[in-house]
Design a protein around this nucleic acid. Structure first.
Length: 346
DNA sequence: TCTGGGGTCCTAGGACCC
DNA sequence: TCTGGGGTCCTAGGACCC
């Protein structure tokens, strides 16, 4: 039998900020874009639990956060700090797993099957892990323990912050069934709405449905979803990770139609992307540009080269060629982006 | 009402090849 | 006038995650 842990750091960005600036302890802290007295453009990256009491949460427009909580402490993200803290914690976690998979800056899966004899022991194991992280890095995390990754992930979110949720094999359905379908990883706002139209609200509604109905509506993904709802997930905790794409994008302070300005910013994006490509020792074959107009209609255009390269001039010139048809359309531009992919590792 | 920036994965049509 | 089947690559768009 497998025993999988999902470790999720609590309000990670604000928690690191509070750790570095103890005078913030107990205050509502919001990490994200500059609110500019309610006129800022951008969103909340992460809010402390104190800030969440005001309704401020991740992905909320920063202007709305400002209206909900003008007295919150608003901070710009310090990614260098978060990456450092994350690396230190991941190193601790990795030491306690047969297999370890990082699932983002603030979460990881651990396969600990060989290290415990049952789920009771796994619970104690997880508790010690939470204490070790708090002791060594002064940050709290929540852990879900389950027979697979999907259930472990849902479980880690079940009691937060500093919560531990153990779901034994025989309790999986009892745990999942009362939950809203939106709790299943991969079910976002769109799928949630479509499911609601089908009168599917809870995981049990989904689980007890005819799987063919799901396949008809959602294809392969529908069949997978039906399995998830029944607590089935055979995916493994995998260590290896290869970068698939590297990109940069910027949203302008104000929507723009100044061609020269746009091309200058595109050049800067190209330089940034190029630098990271070189740092990673990669060569790319595909170049993709992205344009978002003022009302949010978004387009991408891609070009695959005949040979892989890491040349800045080639990147810059292709980016320019790709974006050209989107300029001078009497539509102001909100965002431009540049991404490279199809890597050859050298 | 307003919607960041870093990504991954999937789908679907068309080109092309055998 | 009617035109298979399988595979791969390319491109564009969309959903989702942190």
């Amino acid at each position: 039998m497998r025993v999988i842990l999902h470790v999720d750091l609590d309000a990670f960005f604000p928690s690191v900020e509070v750790r570095e600036h103890p005078e913030l302890k107990g205050k509502p802290v919001v990490v994200g874009a500059d609110p500019k007295e309610g006129k800022g453009r951008g969103v909340v990256s992460s809010a402390s639990y104190e800030a969440r009491k005001y309704g401020v949460r991740s992905a909320l427009p920063i202007s709305r956060a400002w209206k909900l909580c003008p007295n919150c402490v608003y901070l710009r993200p310090h990614f260098d700090l978060y990456i450092k803290a994350s690396n230190a914690i991941m190193k601790i976690l990795k030491n306690h797993a047969d297999r370890f998979e990082q699932g983002g800056i603030d979460e990881a899966y651990l396969d600990i099957s060989s290290r415990v004899k049952d789920f009771d022991e796994a619970g104690e194991f997880a508790e010690k892990l939470m204490e070790e992280v708090l002791d060594k890095e002064k940050l709290t995390c929540s852990i879900g323990v389950a027979p697979n990754k999907m259930v472990a992930k849902i479980a880690s979110d079940y009691k937060k912050p500093y919560g531990l949720t153990v779901v034994k094999e025989e309790d999986v359905k009892g745990f999942l069934f009362p939950l809203k379908v939106g709790k299943i990883p991969g079910v976002g706002p769109k799928t949630d709405r479509r499911l609601k139209e089908m009168k599917i609200e809870t995981v049990s509604d989904l689980a007890t449905l005819n799987p063919e109905a799901m396949t008809r509506q959602f294809g392969v993904w529908g069949a997978k979803l039906h399995e998830y709802a029944n607590g089935i997930d055979f995916s493994e905790v995998v260590e290896g990770y290869e970068t698939k794409s590297i990109g940069r994008e910027v949203t302008f302070e104000h929507d723009v139609d100044d061609e020269e300005l746009i091309l200058n910013v595109l050049d800067e994006l190209a330089e940034d992307v190029h630098k990271e490509v070189i740092d990673c020792g990669l060569q790319f074959k595909t170049i993709t540009i992205k344009v978002r107009y003022q009302h949010f209609d978004t387009h991408t255009r891609a070009k695959s080269l005949l040979f892989p390269t890491n040349d800045l001039v080639i990147l810059r010139n292709n980016a320019k060629r790709l974006i050209a048809p989107y300029l001078r359309r009497n539509k102001k531009i909100r965002l431009i982006g540049l991404r490279v992919s199809t890597f050859v590792h050298r």
